[in-house]
């Protein structure tokens, strides 16, 4: 089997909290194979965005990557010199963000910004860059691409802006695309279009995608595998079928139950009681212990280890481990 496109091992990223620092990402490990789509799922504040930003060392100060290893296409990102990092960003791995409204510079045309991405990594004339950018616009299904090249961001809708972002990210055919909640800020109908676009492009280019989202509907559309994150740690990981159909971790089960379904009318919406603990208030053991409906006494003090459930399916839970032992 070939080297995974992305290999993250025990990543820890911290932020200041009170007097000291708290780990927003606390020992997260996962892998992404060539052409695979991994969805990183969790509530707001669980650390998934910070994980994504850490991959390209884009964590804003005063945040800081404390330890761990991130290998993209075989290269260790955390020890790269700044100039080498620049050649990875945009070329080997690219990123698209949640807020298309503010992610583009308002004073430059969208075409100029895409062309910039190209010319940063490959020598080409302005005319060539323009041609390639327009071709990219076509690829991401922007209507009237040649005219759109000279548009300013404020003249485009959210959906069009996001397409521009995708064009910019995929311009140099990166092997890894990190998509941080790419559809959250868009209208539902536009969401569907963007997801369809991402799926088609992914098949066409064979790009591996790390998809960050809190929306399980989005996950179902795109993901090959799913990793569930809670309070800075991964709690369950598996294929789409395994996690969505045979979830074992109480948190995952709670998440799935909370999705309202059209079929069940008149029922009370299920919810997970309590709130995500703040980084300074995390219990020493399993982080979900405070809200878990089936917690054991040891859950509060003992961090659970990996419990393999099936090939490729892992959960981190004492209760699951116990059930399996029987």
């Amino acid at each position: 089997m070939s080297e995974p496109v992305l290999r993250v091992h025990e990543l820890v990223t911290s932020f200041p909290a009170g007097r000291g620092r708290a780990a927003a990402v606390d020992g997260v490990s996962f892998q992404l194979a060539e052409g695979e789509v991994l969805a990183l799922v969790g509530e707001s504040g669980c650390g998934k965005s910070v994980t994504a930003l850490s991959l390209l060392r884009l964590v804003p100060k005063p945040g800081r990557i404390e330890s761990g290893s991130i290998r993209i296409a075989g290269r260790e990102v955390l020890t790269l010199h700044v100039s080498e990092l620049r050649s990875v960003r945009g070329k080997e791995a690219a990123m698209i963000f949640q807020e298309p409204m503010t992610s583009l510079s308002p004073v430059l045309t969208v075409g100029a910004q895409v062309a910039e991405a190209l010319r940063l990594h490959e020598p080409m004339s302005a005319a060539q860059a323009r041609r390639r950018s327009v071709a990219l616009f076509e690829q991401v299904r922007i209507p009237d691409p040649d005219a759109r090249f000279d548009s300013f961001p404020h003249q485009l809708s959210g959906g069009l802006k996001q397409r521009v972002m995708i064009a910019m990210a995929l311009a140099l055919k990166p092997r890894l695309l990190v998509a941080d909640e790419p559809t959250t800020a868009l209208d539902v109908t536009i969401q569907a279009q963007i997801l369809e676009l991402l799926r088609d492009l992914q098949r066409e280019l064979g790009t591996a995608i790390l998809l960050i989202t809190h929306d399980l509907g989005v996950v179902n559309e795109l993901a090959d595998r799913i990793a569930v994150m809670y309070a800075g740690r991964l709690v369950e990981e598996g294929t789409r079928v395994q996690v969505l159909g045979e979830a074992r971790h109480p948190y995952t089960q709670g998440l799935l139950r909370a999705v309202p379904s059209l079929g069940r009318r008149g029922e009370r919406l299920a919810e997970i009681p309590g709130v995500v603990p703040r980084p300074s208030e995390r219990p020493p053991g399993c982080r979900f212990a405070t809200r878990c409906p089936v917690r054991l006494p040891r859950c509060a003090s003992d961090p659970p280890g990996d419990t393999p459930l099936a090939p490729g399916h892992v959960a981190r839970c004492h209760v699951v481990a116990q059930e399996l032992a029987r």
């Binding site: 390209l56 884009l58 804003p60 700044v82 100039s83 620049r86 050649s87 990875v88 960003r89 945009g90 070329k91 690219a94 990123m95 963000f97 807020e99 503010t102 992610s103 583009l104 510079s105 308002p106 910004q113 910039e116 991405a117 940063l120 990594h121 972002m165 910019m168 990210a169």
Partner: peptide, 14 residues
Amino acid sequence: GRDYVRTARAKGCG
């Protein structure tokens, strides 16, 4: 600190 600066960095801008 704005988002578009983050995008520029993610593209590979020094």
